[in-house]
Design a protein around this nucleic acid. Sequence first.
DNA 1: TAGATTGTTAATCGATTAACAATC
DNA 2: TAGATTGTTAATCGATTAACAATC
Lengths: 292, 292
Amino acid sequence: MTEQHPAPGVRGVSAAPRSDGLHSTKSLHAAKDIPQATVSRLATYLRVLSVMVDEGTLIVSSEELAAAAGVGSAKLRKDLSFLGPNGVRGVGYDVSRLRDRIETALGLDQGHRVVLVGVGNLGRALAGYGGFGRRGFAMVGLFDTAPGVVGTVVSELEVRDAGALLAACIELQPTIAVIAVPDEAAQNVCDRLVEAGLRCILSFTPVELEAPDHVEVRRVDLAVEMQMLSFRSARNAEIVDAEAATANQSRVPSTRLGRSRGPRSAATAASAPAQGTVANTTTNSKGSVVRQ
Amino acid sequence: MTEQHPAPGVRGVSAAPRSDGLHSTKSLHAAKDIPQATVSRLATYLRVLSVMVDEGTLIVSSEELAAAAGVGSAKLRKDLSFLGPNGVRGVGYDVSRLRDRIETALGLDQGHRVVLVGVGNLGRALAGYGGFGRRGFAMVGLFDTAPGVVGTVVSELEVRDAGALLAACIELQPTIAVIAVPDEAAQNVCDRLVEAGLRCILSFTPVELEAPDHVEVRRVDLAVEMQMLSFRSARNAEIVDAEAATANQSRVPSTRLGRSRGPRSAATAASAPAQGTVANTTTNSKGSVVRQ
DNA sequence: TAGATTGTTAATCGATTAACAATC
DNA sequence: TAGATTGTTAATCGATTAACAATC
């Protein structure tokens, strides 16, 4: 790693030699005040940059990288500025260097060892999910309680008895645990993972898990994602409805069936396929291969 | 449904008879300005309320509901206020009524018909995920391209050929589509779903999908969730490190191994099990059954 | 030097929070 | 009426955005 700047200075214990007096308070752990929203986007930039590295791209401007990541360039530069100076003015960013920088900032450069508890449908999918391995997360242990599952091999790992979680964690030294058990069992599993010394837990159960402050629990609720989509679809249907009501007021008063059932029927009507609005969307499709 | 108030007035096309002059601009589609963050939390409240209905709870205060959902009561009341008045001052909220109210606001009261494209590991897990059905999402169609998969039965549905997507959508009338295909195929699948008239798409591929404005695409990137955990763990390790460096300055200068490899080794050290910090977490666990 | 692009500023926008008036 | 709790306000906090000075 060739260092252009004296020291990146965002991480590391010793006070960074920043020329300006900014961030002087709490200077010891500046990484703390990177906003969550920024961290999430950094992960996205990282993925895009990895693709660029593979393609052999050497330099990228904030404009290009932002476009590829689907954000504005101002936001991108602001996000990157939390990591200290990363680019060269008038030139752009060194792709591979910036990737490494973000990787380090996210704590990914050492890799992570992941244990997964709950080898049901979802657990199996997660265990076999290539996206993890590709991004530095190694599955090192699978656990379940069902006798029919314990002992079987899933994604090249033998499923262990969840009762042996604590002992296994001492052996496996995981840095992250994933919970994919039924709702009722989740809190108990969480407690035992905390006992075993885990500090990072990703839960796929909708229940809010209680854990000590020093343990970070993230929850992914797949149904919530769908419900947010549902809201947008209902909202859109309503707007379409409202516009139709005002714009076409003089023409056909109500072209839709089931209006008597109230505005709710709009949601169903809005999803009707293949008329008018659909036609001009096909022109929008651009080939069958993914392009950034 | 017994209506206490003359009309909820947040949805619906006709102007709502609000006594105050608020939201008078753009009054036609007030639902538009419910913040995303609020929508997401509404989904959480809905889940908690459903549990309460099942338990036979009739009335709940903002304080209680907020606690159960893991948010502050002020935030909860603010969130609910976007739906219009829902409670009774001095009393609280009618649990079942509030649940229905949120369900309607999220557009869930009519249910949703979901098609899923890509019946690999993840697709299978999603197809069999009970959390969807339990919350009003019905899987109505599974699609794949692999000859070995097409025709097989997964979660009580026969997998169809993805080539017949458009025709099938006319028949199935889905309101939501889920994409769980390999990255390279995602954009193509997305284009064809748009062609088929879908307006709500949930994608599990990390690639940013292009779609017309009237189509809502949500992306769930499982690796990003892990990466955010990773960041927090690295940050925590760093803080622990920094505190140790300042507090124990006069004592042992460096108690950890591998310090020569730079601050990054802190992440590994922080995950070491079972000493000091672990002891007081076991007292925190409260029985083995999930309790809200 | 001229051209280009970063890193940073300051203004805007939006979300959170605490406090309280309204009112059951 | 007195007690309780909602719905709303206004202040605070944080994130986004556009513009530009710094500088390669």
